[in-house]
Design a binder for these strands. Sequence first.
DNA 1: TGAAATTCTGGGAGCGCTCCCATATATGAG
DNA 2: CTCATATATGGGAGCGCTCCCAGAATTTCA
Lengths: 347, 347
Amino acid sequence: MKLEDIAKKVGVSRSTVSRVINNQPYVGERTRQRVMKVIEQEQFQPDPAARALVTGRTEIIGVAIPQTTNVFFGDNSYFPMLLQGIAETTIKRDYAMLLWLGQSLEERNGFSERVSKNRQPDGLIIASVTENDPLFSRLITMKRTFVMVETPPRFDEIVNYVTIDNVRASEQVVEHLASVGYRRIATITGQLNIRDGTDRLQGFKNGMEKVGLPVDPDLIYPGQFSREYGYMGMKHLLQFKPDAVICGGDTVAIGAIDAIHEAGLKVPDDVAIVGFDDLDVAVQSDPPLTTIRHSVQRVGEVAAQLLIDLIEGKVQAPHHIVLPTELVVRQSSDYNALKEVMYPIGD
Amino acid sequence: MKLEDIAKKVGVSRSTVSRVINNQPYVGERTRQRVMKVIEQEQFQPDPAARALVTGRTEIIGVAIPQTTNVFFGDNSYFPMLLQGIAETTIKRDYAMLLWLGQSLEERNGFSERVSKNRQPDGLIIASVTENDPLFSRLITMKRTFVMVETPPRFDEIVNYVTIDNVRASEQVVEHLASVGYRRIATITGQLNIRDGTDRLQGFKNGMEKVGLPVDPDLIYPGQFSREYGYMGMKHLLQFKPDAVICGGDTVAIGAIDAIHEAGLKVPDDVAIVGFDDLDVAVQSDPPLTTIRHSVQRVGEVAAQLLIDLIEGKVQAPHHIVLPTELVVRQSSDYNALKEVMYPIGD
DNA sequence: TGAAATTCTGGGAGCGCTCCCATATATGAG
DNA sequence: CTCATATATGGGAGCGCTCCCAGAATTTCA
């Protein structure tokens, strides 16, 4: 069943049916009703391909997650939440969502080619782009419409993005820890080729300076956003006897706690731990994590809104949106629990 | 840049360029080379809409997950893994993947309408369909090509699906538990309006009969696939003093363990716990879970393969695929740890 | 050597829509 | 009542491809 058949059935022209479908003016009220009735009873849906061919738009947005397998479906609910947020908006705005997941590191290049060459979506949302990701430069060169869900690694000024104020949030964490009495504050970072990682580290350093504590390189462990790295990082840091460790993400924090427990120590009694993101695991963790709350889902929603607005010409590029964060204090950084002498003196 | 421009540039006709792009025969080797070279240097990609309009195919498959929010991104890595598997295949076969996520229960109907009416994908993969899900019947009525990733609630014979042998796997669990000495075996089921849920329960009952144990209704708790339900279920079951509990899923098992610990009891010393699915949490759990391993990712891969084969007419519908499962015994069902007297006699 | 078979190439038609312009009818101002 | 203006409807053109058929060039074989 096509548009023309509906027209014939109602006894009007293609154009009139098209106008009704697209909610355009200049259709008599009676005619509109008759057309709508037939469309309804025939369950007619215009062919998206034909429509796309002439309008040049598909009403599909693409989402590219060039991450390796385990990051996507591992202990990390970040991406599912992001997708949920994006889905929310696409439904609301009547778009569909095309998803690309990266497979393994080896084929980063293939991934970026596959994504960038596909002309089906009207625009893209891309997540977790590393500094020299080919996808990033490619999209810029091709002048495609896209929105990032973190601060871009370069070209901040010309790229659209939705992010949170990672620097400020990390500063806040340091300020909080310092204000309740922690002094040897360490950090296990996230990936440092992603802005979320570097910005959080920057915030850590800024915060330390602000509160007048020294930034000791020994107390900075460059990690990644995973439980494993949290574990490894903490094992390494223990020798330097931090009294608090700020982790690049909640899963990192969980890993750090694993290592602390393994060493026979307690959180927060021996070491305070702070996460970032306030994922589900933050509450489920034992003890519950002090962390930075920000709604990943909301980032997804807003990113999709921005993208669709850009596509529809409702806003001009470049457009930058920074969403608020909130420090959530839970047991993992309870200073009252901190033992006076944390480690045997002299080791 | 369009196909015709390439043709002009090379000095051949549209048809020839089209043949080259689609790898068709009857193009001279020299001509083919020349065309390819220009396509390469112009980075030409044919317009998917135009192509779809004439071929009637978009090379997009749709994935519909009509689940509520928290099931999708909660403590459950099932869907991310499924997506990863589907993505693997779509990349291999050069398709793209359109994703729909359900939002909340209230709009089940809206969801199914949105998904079924969208004509963009050539076929669909649908997950976690409940018995009277409107999407299910709708797709059947519309005669759309789709593959389910579990046994369908009805019309088994005409619907395509990829699944695992839930019944047999559960039987196996019971047989294992019985063989090592457990006697009061209980179960906390998954959702019973999903086949995965009912089949696992059926397997439980079959297994009990096979090994000659009574099927006591008190020992069957109808739950859902979540930690919460595991917790509630276990709390309820404790009064009936089971020595082992088979859970509908690993997350359910985690919840059950929570309840056991809360009651001051130990796993497996007081109660053995068995999960299902062998998700990441199964190993991370304390103690690690005995469970049924089956690759969710593999189910996704195979489902996508089947769907694309159906779309391309390489296989005939209906097509049913049952993937193997494997019993993985870990500490949560270690009979040696079971105390002789598990509960004070007489309560 | 010639006719048939095979390989190559080109161009028309048409996929199902939207957009633009032409025309028809209704509405209002002077 | 006339002309301008707003409202309503129809039909042609064309979006960028693929598919089909016609015809040219080449090969095969008696």
